[in-house]
Design a binder for these strands. Structure first.
Lengths: 206, 206
DNA sequence: AGCAATTCGTAACATTTGTTACATGACAAA
DNA sequence: TTTGTCATGTAACAAATGTTACGAATTGCT
């Protein structure tokens, strides 16, 4: 499983071997905390299977979904935090049951120097997340909530690979950092516009 | 001038030499376009002197300030765009009269492979801008306009090194992607709270 | 069936932000 | 000084978003 996922990135076999040696497997259930960068030890999560969510949050409890982490991906936030030794207000939660290969941060620097493929990989991770953050900013500045909500639904469809999104209005409100009532109101509007259809605990994208 | 600025980053002397050979100086006046990533050729701007602003904008004309570029800094957006060959909706405008060393994008990849210090430098640029984008998202999601405006003023004070901000309400509105009337309203509020004092074309931070 | 908990719909209202219109004051050029 | 332009203040209103409250529908459990 690990070999298969790692080989996608064209890592040297020696690097793959090291990653196998040094990392460890973590299995989580949907909804579990994977990493809380405030308190836990610094590790890089490497998604072997499942789906994770990366949030930015405030001390007081408010939070907003930044992006999904799919199979084979890893988290630029974690890397940024590890390298800077900063404790940013980021946490990672499992969206589905997932398997994650955890790599202690102390090996990052070494591997970047030692393995060109790893250096390249980290660079690409930054590129990818940079793009996503730019899209996020775009939505936040230039879109109203209705558009932002719809983009969120499309994004979730993309990440889960399903036209049916099994979430409550409250959960969606949490991910967009707004209130349940507002989400209900806007979803109703989207439904009237025939962009979605709603069932209990489930939104279908048309 | 170039040598002095480049040496801050601990570049190898051979790299400095290459940068001197291949780049070229561009002088701009306050308000000038430095780069429009939609149309112009791909280059990396390296600020020798002055102050630049990096915007994200929409096709229809709306725009928002992402961050300032100070002396010795360069732009992660430009790099991301160059490497991806993407045309992101980014442009760079001079805040003050500035001198910029322009480096054609074709040398980026080469130098990253050839010079460890350059690879490291690019990596650090990403780190730095990542942080700024995270702060921007933080403000957009968790703050109201008044807070966002005040943070903007503090940020500008930081970048310019002056307690006096010589901008009109309209200019500020453009950078925050809102309207002049709203900015006037909120600045009045900040003035009543003794956080700033206002003069014509000038806001003083207290 | 009866009950409790969850989910969703909706109304009524408050607050924030955006828009339009116009008045006032400052400044510079003639 | 006079005139015209620009920057700011402010009112009145519109639209978007947030909040509180409550009722109806669904689900799961006993």
């Amino acid at each position: 499983m690990i070999k298969e996922v790692l080989s996608i990135h064209g890592f040297e076999s020696e690097l793959i071997h090291e990653i196998e040696e040094i990392g460890y497997l973590k299995k989580v259930k949907a909804g579990d905390f994977v990493i809380d960068l405030r308190v836990q030890e610094k590790v890089i999560p490497f998604v072997l299977d499942g789906l994770l969510k990366v949030y930015k949050h405030k001390p007081d409890g408010g939070k907003v979904l930044l992006y999904y982490l799919e199979k084979g991906e890893t988290c630029a936030m974690s890397i940024a935090c590890c390298i800077d030794k900063r404790s940013d207000n980021i946490h990672v939660i499992a969206e589905d049951d997932s398997q994650i290969w955890m790599i202690p941060n102390t090996y990052l620097d070494k591997w970047m120097v030692k393995y060109p493929s790893f250096d390249r990989f980290i660079f690409n991770v930054y590129q990818l997340r940079f793009d996503e953050l730019m899209d996020t900013i775009d939505s936040l500045v230039f879109s109203n909530l209705e558009e932002r909500l719809f983009k969120y639904l499309l994004n979730t469809k993309q990440a889960t690979g399903s036209f049916e999104i099994r979430k409550t209005h409250q959960q969606i409100a949490d991910e967009l950092s707004t209130s349940r009532v507002v989400v209900s109101r806007l979803l109703k509007k989207l439904e009237l516009d025939d962009k979605i259809s709603q069932h209990r605990n489930c939104i279908e994208i048309l």
